[in-house]
Amino acid sequence: MAWITPDPEDDAWLVHVRVTPRAKREALDVEGERLRVRLTTPPVDGKANAALCKLLARQFGVAKSAITLVRGARSRDKTLRVSAPKRWPAGLPHPEDPPPP
């Protein structure tokens, strides 16, 4: 399984994420089969989930309402659905590109 897979229902992608809250700075990196997302926000009262949705919306060029938490609301491992992304996040590999040598 890749860190991002096409959603079979429509023009959307399922993003598989591992979140690190309370980081020193926000960052996105692909680690294995998950997207590692570092957030400065603490995991209190859903604030980290809201910050995650906001960050992914900014990276994919969509509204926050286009990001849906599918699985893992109270876990570090989450799956989010991104509807009709306008652009690809800079520095992240596209799943249709061949792997580097």
Rank of each mutant, 00 (worst) to 15 (best):
V19S: 01
K64P: 11
P98N: 13
A50T: 15
P98H: 14
E31W: 14
G32C: 08
K78Q: 15
G46L: 02
R36Q: 12
L52V: 14
A51D: 05
V15W: 01
K47S: 15
A27M: 08
W3C: 04
D10H: 05
V15Q: 00
E9N: 14
S65E: 06
P93Q: 11
R38V: 06
D29G: 04
R36H: 07
A50K: 08
G72T: 14
L80E: 01
D77H: 09
P95F: 11
P93Y: 02
L52A: 05
V70G: 01
A66H: 05
V30P: 02
R25Q: 09
D11L: 07
L55A: 13
R38P: 00
V62F: 05
G91P: 00
G61P: 12
V17N: 01
S83T: 13
K64V: 12
L52T: 03
L80K: 02
A57K: 09
I4M: 03
E96Y: 03
A50E: 12
R76P: 15
P89D: 00
V19I: 09
E9G: 13
D29M: 06
A2Q: 03
R58Q: 10
A90L: 10
S83F: 04
P99H: 06
P100H: 09
A63F: 12
W88R: 01
D10K: 05
L55R: 05
D29P: 02
L52S: 03
L55H: 04
R76Q: 04
T20H: 11
K54L: 09
A50F: 12
V44N: 03
D7E: 06
G32K: 08
G72R: 10
K47A: 12
L14D: 00
Q59N: 06
D7A: 07
